[in-house]
Design a protein around this nucleic acid. Structure first.
Lengths: 356, 356
DNA sequence: TATCAATCTCGAAACGTTTCGCCAGCGTTG
DNA sequence: CAACGCTGGCGAAACGTTTCGAGATTGATA
């Protein structure tokens, strides 16, 4: 197996190393291309002798099959799109990690797209993914009001996670936001809190409306009236959380004694605002947020959170998507949503309501 | 332009929607495939009349060129690999966001790979990226001691960022870790601190050794002796930071009065350990860390950090990589590193050293 | 020894693009 | 009027695989 002479001959004028193809391997091993392919894929029997020759040739040439060609021929790219609203929200990197790992286990790669909370960009991402003919996509959508009906006719399988569209047919896997929100609120009510503020970002999100419903249900369930104007939407980022909290605390008599945030970044700002208003947590105010990033455990005080089972979401979503891809019948007759449970992890930031 | 009949004819038995190809467009517009390609790519003149026909046909069939085939033919995939050691470290998602954005602007997609701090996995990722024939990769390596010499002969262009190998030829773009570390340490020394602890993760990392050098240089520069056994390596994660700090604080007389952490997660644990040891920040201990994630600004107290110019790193790294790809001469004759400046953002966590 | 089945092997046709070279048409020019 | 250059268009050959159908080899059976 002497490959250097061969290499020299093939090297282009530009000095760029030669791309070794299946042809080269076949030539060196003195077999047909088909045979090489057969030993690579192992789905067709090849004699011991030739297998050995091919193996040796592949090793000598450091041959690595070109996935592009393979993909074009077989129709499967073994790539999956992952489109998320904002990598900067710590929930998503952790999700990404799990999804990437799950995908890797099933021998798939992940093409990441950040929508930057912009429906337009999200759409562009999805179109690009389709153009690349990835096998399918996992998406946490930016806005539940947008329509994804155009995906189906294209035969482009998508499964949603955590956030899914309000209308149309789709498959989704999500934590039970309503139940989680219910439990968190109930936890606070049982501590005697009544003036419980609720910060959410975009209300046009399946997760937002479910969480809102859970929050309201908890009050109804406890037979306690909901405080007016404590449900605040469109709070964005740490600064948004800070501003909203400052505003709420302007009037000390009407200030909240507890707060539930729809994501961890909001809480960061809100907590600071509370401190700056002279409030101490949990003595004067209790704090809870969705998601459970590392810092919540180490924050003073450690934050009570709602932790999503990210690994499970990832594995389940991937399973669903792959099944849909295999089945080759991407057109959906009806919507299905699978629910997973959040865990309320109680730490130091929640306690009894202050006595007036 | 009646396409429905055509669609019906093409629809397969499996109910899967037909894939419309350039052939279909050509047929419908009654021109050759070459002409369709010409109007798509616009690099060959096509008459007004035909252009119009082709446009109409494409619209009617909702034709979207297959990137796979395009890629195979042209040799450019317009995909870039991004391999990072750990998405869970907040530095990387932010980096990722910038890189993805920069790539998008230049009409490229990003294939994300998380090495999970494992050199083996990193290597597998790189091999997979090559197999997919992405145009190149941006990598923050897991360990500077591993060799990446095998990439060059493959003609696979890679540029390193923030962490690069100790040996071999490579291109890198990095913040000036040494200078940053020097400034941070100097900042502390000027506050009168002498017992300044330094936590780092893997010492076999270019960034680690540079930061260590900066730390040491600051003492030398100030003519102050370095405290013994305050330079602690292999501190991993928040728990690692916690443990290391607890250990250092065991003996109150010998405890540090300041701490510099190589990443933000370490600081999280260390800060908690300090609190639990009865230390108050910044009165009893000053804290600084590299990277500047949102929470540092909202933590009580707000953390003094070293902020990397992530956007600039991303843009510059991308530029370098694309240039390397264009130039089609991936074999490197020598190494080049470009340095960017960190910014020391001073907040509440650093102050005068306690008087004994 | 002829026949047959069971293996293995191979050439060639896809997959969906881009691009190269050639040709037809046509107005200019000597 | 012949020769020529230009323009726009087309067929066909790539790109690097997989896969299909058919041919070649072998060993066993009648």
């Amino acid at each position: 197996m002497e490959e250097s002479a061969y290499f020299m001959a093939k090297r282009g004028a530009d000095g760029r190393p030669p791309r070794v193809t299946i042809q080269d391997v076949a030539r060196l091993a003195d077999v047909s291309v088909a045979t090489v392919s057969a030993v690579i894929n192992g789905n067709v029997p090849v004699s011991e002798k030739r297998t050995e020759r091919v193996r040796a040739a592949m090793a000598a040439l450091r041959y690595q099959p070109d996935e592009r060609a393979r993909t074009l021929r077989t129709g499967r790219s073994r790539m999956l799109g992952l489109v998320i609203p904002d990598v900067t929200n710590p929930f998503y990197p952790e999700m990404l990690r799990e999804i990437e790992h799950a995908a890797r286990v099933r021998d798939h790669s992940v093409l990441l797209c950040d929508s930057n909370n912009d429906p337009e960009q999200e759409r562009r991402h999805l179109e690009a993914l389709y153009a690349r003919r990835v096998d399918g996509a996992l998406v946490a959508c930016v806005d539940s009001k947008v329509s994804y009906d155009w995906l189906d006719p294209l035969g482009f399988p998508v499964v949603f996670f955590e956030r899914y569209p309000f209308s149309g047919h789709y498959q989704a896997i999500s934590t039970d936001h309503r139940a989680a929100s219910f439990h968190a609120t109930k936890h606070l009510i049982q501590f005697g809190h009544r003036r419980i503020a609720f910060f959410l970002t975009n209300p046009d999100l399946s997760s937002s409306s479910e969480r809102t419903a859970g929050y309201q249900a908890a009050f109804a369930d406890a037979g306690v009236p909901m405080p007016p104007s404590m449900l605040i939407a469109h709070v964005e980022g740490a600064q948004g959380g800070y501003n909203a909290m400052r505003r709420l605390c302007a009037n000390p008599e009407k200030r909240p004694t507890a707060l539930l945030c729809t994501n961890s970044v909001l809480l960061l700002g809100a907590a600071r605002a509370a401190r700056e208003s002279g409030l101490q947590c949990p003595r004067d105010i209790s704090l809870i947020c969705f998601d459970n990033p590392v810092w919540t455990e180490h924050f003073p005080p450690a934050i009570t959170t709602l932790a999503q089972p990210k690994g499970e979401i990832a594995r389940r979503a991937l399973e669903l998507l792959l099944a849909r891809i295999e089945k080759k019948a991407p057109t959906l007759e009806e919507s299905t949503i699978e629910w997973l449970k959040d865990e309320l992890v109680v730490r130091e930031s929640t306690g009894p309501a202050p006595t007036p």
